[in-house]
Computed example of a mutant assay.
Amino acid sequence: MNLEEYIASGILDSYAIGAVSDQEVREVNCLSSIYPEIRKELDELMLSTENYALLHSIEPPAGLKDRIMRQLTFEDADETIVRPLPIDRDLSAEATRPYTYKTSWMVAAAAALAVLFFSYFLITQLQTNQKTMASLRESNDSMQLQLKQLRTSQGQTDQILAMLRQPGARTLELRGNEKAPQGDMLVFWNPSTQQVAVEVKSLPALPADKQYQLWSLVDGKPVDAGVFDAGTAVQKMNRSIGKADAFAVTIEKRGGSPTPSMATLLAMSPVA
């Protein structure tokens, strides 16, 4: 999409003064939430339009409404109404002057009221649009955060895939014992690069002060392989494991423990 051509098309100017269709409103709202350039231009136009409306707003003089209503109901007729003249005589300029003055004054007053009402309408529309734009900004910020999280998750997944494509990569499935009968997770391990990652499919949620800890068993001795949380995303461990006869999972205090708590052992699987 050519953003410069779209901005120069004038649709943002029309949007700022409320002269667009419902379809165009939806289009501008959507594009401004996606493209920062369009949103910035629209914000500037909306601010300029609001400043223009406030600068040119007209404060109606005191008693304007009462004077207009008297004129519309032709009160005080003795001061403004034209006296009847004989049919065979032409109306003189002096006789028609009160009527002309009255008509001009009424037109000017009606125009002033129209400008006043339009200014009020425009300011109300601008305030509504500002609230809508604030809501759209919040939605856009939320979408940006979700997008950032997805990109982070995608980056981690790409790292795991790169690790699995290397020669010697292995995938082990660990299923829970009687303490976690529904427990199920995968361990990705590459002895050549000594990288380890886990993917939790199903594990019980833990208190805030607890974490799952992965262990590799080497000649019957447990080696810390890192801690992880019960999530669906692939998590890369921050420990290097070059040798393992089996992998096991226990529940430890947050941050991990130097030795496993065998009473909290949830799963163990040998390396085939």
Results as ranks from 00 to 15, higher is better:
34 I>V: 14
178 E>Q: 11
55 L>C: 04
196 V>Q: 03
169 A>S: 15
156 Q>D: 10
173 E>R: 11
33 S>Q: 11
62 A>T: 14
68 I>E: 04
27 E>A: 04
186 L>Q: 13
115 V>A: 11
92 S>Q: 07
96 T>H: 05
178 E>L: 10
29 N>V: 05
125 Q>N: 11
8 A>V: 00
139 S>T: 12
113 L>P: 01
91 L>S: 01
43 D>S: 13
174 L>Y: 04
24 E>K: 09
26 R>K: 09
106 M>G: 01
45 L>A: 00
150 L>G: 01
171 T>D: 00
158 D>R: 04
132 T>F: 05
12 L>Q: 01
29 N>E: 15
266 L>S: 03
92 S>P: 05
258 P>C: 03
252 E>A: 14
113 L>N: 11
110 A>I: 12
69 M>E: 15
223 V>K: 09
127 Q>K: 10
3 L>W: 05
15 Y>C: 03
80 T>G: 01
248 A>C: 06
146 Q>W: 15
52 Y>P: 00
164 L>F: 02
62 A>G: 11
246 A>L: 08
131 K>S: 13
26 R>M: 07
98 P>D: 12
58 I>D: 00
145 L>D: 12
70 R>E: 15
67 R>D: 15
196 V>M: 05
98 P>C: 10
7 I>Q: 06
95 A>K: 07
86 P>V: 02
77 A>K: 08
28 V>C: 00
100 T>D: 09
246 A>F: 07
242 G>Y: 08
149 Q>I: 13
258 P>H: 09
29 N>A: 10
135 S>M: 11
50 E>G: 02
11 I>K: 03
8 A>C: 03
192 S>H: 06
267 A>Q: 02
78 D>T: 03
262 M>C: 01
19 A>E: 14
269 S>G: 00
49 T>I: 03
165 R>M: 07
94 E>M: 10
226 G>R: 02
63 G>Q: 06
245 D>R: 05
226 G>E: 04
225 A>P: 04
85 L>K: 09
162 A>H: 07
230 A>I: 02
190 N>I: 14
14 S>R: 15
231 G>I: 12
4 E>C: 01
164 L>E: 06
116 L>H: 12
7 I>M: 09
134 A>H: 11
31 L>V: 07
147 L>W: 03
140 N>D: 14
93 A>P: 02
57 S>C: 04
183 G>A: 05
76 D>R: 10
1 M>N: 03
190 N>P: 01
145 L>A: 14
77 A>P: 02
218 V>F: 08
194 Q>E: 14
229 D>T: 14
176 G>Y: 06
88 D>T: 10
170 R>C: 05
85 L>T: 13
131 K>W: 09
33 S>P: 01
207 P>K: 09
40 K>H: 12
136 L>H: 04
84 P>Q: 11
201 K>N: 15
217 L>S: 06
190 N>M: 12
85 L>Y: 04
192 S>C: 02
215 W>G: 05
83 R>E: 12
245 D>T: 08
247 F>L: 07
119 S>I: 06
118 F>K: 08
135 S>H: 07
4 E>K: 09
57 S>D: 13
134 A>S: 15
118 F>I: 09
170 R>Q: 15
121 F>A: 08
266 L>C: 06
